[in-house]
Design a protein around this nucleic acid. Sequence first.
DNA 1: ACCGGCAGCTGACATTTGTCATGGGCCGTG
DNA 2: CACGGCCCATGACAAATGTCAGCTGCCGGT
Lengths: 202, 202
Amino acid sequence: MTVRVLLADDEHLIRGALAALLSLEDDLVVVAEAASGPEALAMARAHAPDVAVLDLQMPGADGVKVATSLRTELPGCQVLIVTSHGRPGHLKRALAAGVRGFVPKTVSAQRLAEIIRTVQAGNRYVDPELAADAISAGDSPLTAREAEVLELAADGAPVAEIAERAALSQGTVRNYLSSAVSKLGVENRHAAVRLARQRGWV
Amino acid sequence: MTVRVLLADDEHLIRGALAALLSLEDDLVVVAEAASGPEALAMARAHAPDVAVLDLQMPGADGVKVATSLRTELPGCQVLIVTSHGRPGHLKRALAAGVRGFVPKTVSAQRLAEIIRTVQAGNRYVDPELAADAISAGDSPLTAREAEVLELAADGAPVAEIAERAALSQGTVRNYLSSAVSKLGVENRHAAVRLARQRGWV
DNA sequence: ACCGGCAGCTGACATTTGTCATGGGCCGTG
DNA sequence: CACGGCCCATGACAAATGTCAGCTGCCGGT
């Protein structure tokens, strides 16, 4: 009746500490650790854990991507995502990817252990605060292209460069940018980028 | 001969896990924990630890600010800063604030324990990789005002707003922005903001 | 005393943006 | 099929931004 756990987080310190802490619970056992997305996937294949605790931001592939792959490869493995910066959009994406749990790193280890058990039992758990944020943030009002262009604009590139990289005319790029800006109700595209990022829409 | 440690990190999960892990070392004892800058300061005053392990990014006041205050209030307390995102500029600021150690969260708990001892003994320890980054990044080429204006430009505000908030004329703002852009060798001010942020110059 | 660097401003100009109107093609729904 | 929504484009215009030259004044170093 022990739960076999896979732990993935790029920060060695945290991963190790977490492993130590979860091991104090006598019904939990950490069977594998990983420091990147691909590594997490490999470890999961090798050890077939009951629950995979994944950090949202990892090098290689983020938690949601890993969860998606896991969903098809190891249907018996439930995924729990842990994150520092809870962005509403991420939660939505995560849920869509079949993730069963989504919690911020501000929870205590006690709570985490409970949540791992909850998830292992096939139930879902989403942090109430994050859920509230996600609901109040609503769905992205941006169309696919608007989001794409906004993303290309993220590093402050001029319109000409965005147009080239998106294989669009400059006028079109400006139109999309303009409509995104008006939809988000902000001053200019840079603020739009920031807001969309905050909301997890890009 | 035990080292009394203060632990400050806003992520409960990590703080708790870390505390558990450090307690395994029999010469280390965690005497206090804090979840924010001001709280860390208060805890330090109350418990006078030998070493303060501070997260760089915390609500209220960041690790460096706390270190600065600690330096004068508790000269006997050595400060060790732990961070996820090692930005060169932060390291420089930290060292200037009298911080004795600076490490990324990717180190293992074993290493961290050793480093805590090193710091407690009055020696310094800086992660080699972060040090290399800081050296290669060099000093900020920006003047005080340039940096200030760049900071106000960070959220994509129009020049008019920056000018108002900085109590400068719009022309002056544009001049500073322009010189910052050319010094950093980037396309426009938004890219400049990004680069300066990356380098830790803002 | 002089020079250089920084702060601060102005004005003029070219370029880049944001905004709007307008049009066509494609697709899904009623 | 008509309608609406998204995609993609053009052209024109206004506004914001970037760039340059040139001005004053302060301060620190030689």
